[in-house]
């Protein structure tokens, strides 16, 4: 099996084989990143542009490091500060950028579907670094790699995703990825933060942490996305923490060797107890950050191979 995708817009379009190919390649980049010379040249000569229409520190720097370790010329564009403020449309921004002949375009945008739209208009490989509440594919892939390394497999596991599911693109991508890899997925959160139709997504839905965590192998906490809420989803942060915040007592309902994950940035004392987040025996939060770089290296490497192959075959437009 071969990885044939031209863009990485979401987990939805990947097959289980694609996921395995990406994770296997990412393993080699974990080794590279831990080695003495953190450099390869598979992206040498290629231009990578990171276009972030929404503020991000960790994802943007992760993509930047990934590109640089593979030898790409990396440029960051802080889109909030630039042309959109002057009224330029997304399409015009895309066309302007396209004229600069980028090869890899990493895009984050506050609106669902914006990255799909952009991908239709440019002649390069597009990676979705998070679009609205839709998808964040590299996050799900790095979570998958973290789980696979911690648990020795990425199948037949019970994974509980807890908290603000409704506003979370991380949750959507993880539901799709974990489902494709044949795991049992549970969603736990107050009903106001569970998206409509969740029960039809092949997951089990709980509004009680103790029931939902019972026997779980993996506990994935999500950040309460206050910036996406237009008021009134939960009565207060302290009630939320009381019912849905992860602490040692609630975690005791999961399996003894259950791991704790969080995509960051964390709100300590809102969705997760600070001591628990720092517990190196349970928390794999730092591993997630490390795997993030490796997974992004793998994704860009694979997409660049397909890009080069398509250009060698003389395909004019790359969509």
């Amino acid at each position: 099996m071969e990885f044939r995708a031209r863009h990485l817009l979401g987990i939805e379009h990947l097959s289980p084989w694609d996921v395995r190919i990406i994770l296997d390649l990412a393993e080699t980049y974990v080794d590279l990143s831990r080695g003495a010379t953190k450099h390869a040249d598979v992206l040498a000569g290629l231009t990578q542009i990171n276009m972030f229409f929404e503020a991000s520190t960790r994802t943007q720097s992760s993509f930047e490091i990934a590109g640089k370790r593979l030898g790409a010329d990396v440029m960051n564009m802080a889109m909030q500060a630039s042309s959109i403020k002057k009224g330029e449309t997304l399409i015009d921004t895309a066309l302007t950028l396209n004229a600069m002949h980028p090869d890899l375009l990493v895009v984050r945008h506050p609106h669902s579907g914006a990255v799909d739209l952009l991908a239709q208009k440019v002649n390069c490989a597009v990676l979705n670094a998070g679009d609205g509440r839709h998808e964040h594919p590299t996050q799900a892939l790095l979570d998958g790699l973290t789980i696979r390394r911690a648990k020795g497999r990425l199948q037949r596991l019970t994974v509980a995703i807890c908290g603000d599911i409704a506003h979370s693109r991380v949750a959507r991508s993880n539901i799709l990825l974990l489902g494709k890899m044949e795991n049992r997925v549970r969603l736990i959160g107050p009903p106001t933060l569970i998206p409509s139709g969740a029960a039809e997504m092949g997951v089990e839905v709980y509004d009680d942490m103790k029931e939902g965590l019972d026997g779980a192998d993996v506990v994935m906490m999500l950040r309460l996305q206050k910036e996406r809420m237009d008021g009134g989803f939960i009565p207060s942060e302290r009630e939320y923490y009381h019912r849905f915040g992860l602490d040692a007592e609630k975690l005791a309902y999961a399996k003894d060797d259950a791991i704790v994950m969080h995509p960051g940035p964390m709100n300590r004392g809102v969705e997760i107890d600070g001591t628990l987040a720092d517990d190196i025996n349970r928390s794999v939060i730092q591993d997630q950050v490390e795997m993030g770089v490796a997974v992004r290296m793998a994704c860009m490497d694979l997409l660049a191979r397909n890009l080069r192959a398509a250009r060698a075959a003389g395909e004019g437009t790359y969509v």
């Binding site: 839709h134 139709g197 969740a198």
Partner: peptide, 20 residues
């Protein structure tokens, strides 16, 4: 208010604001 899709699995997977 602000809805772009009908509530349900499709709207949720697409991440669109929805109306029941």
């Amino acid at each position: 208010g602000g809805a772009a899709a009908t509530s349900g699995k499709f709207a949720s997977l697409r991440g669109l604001p929805s109306v029941p």
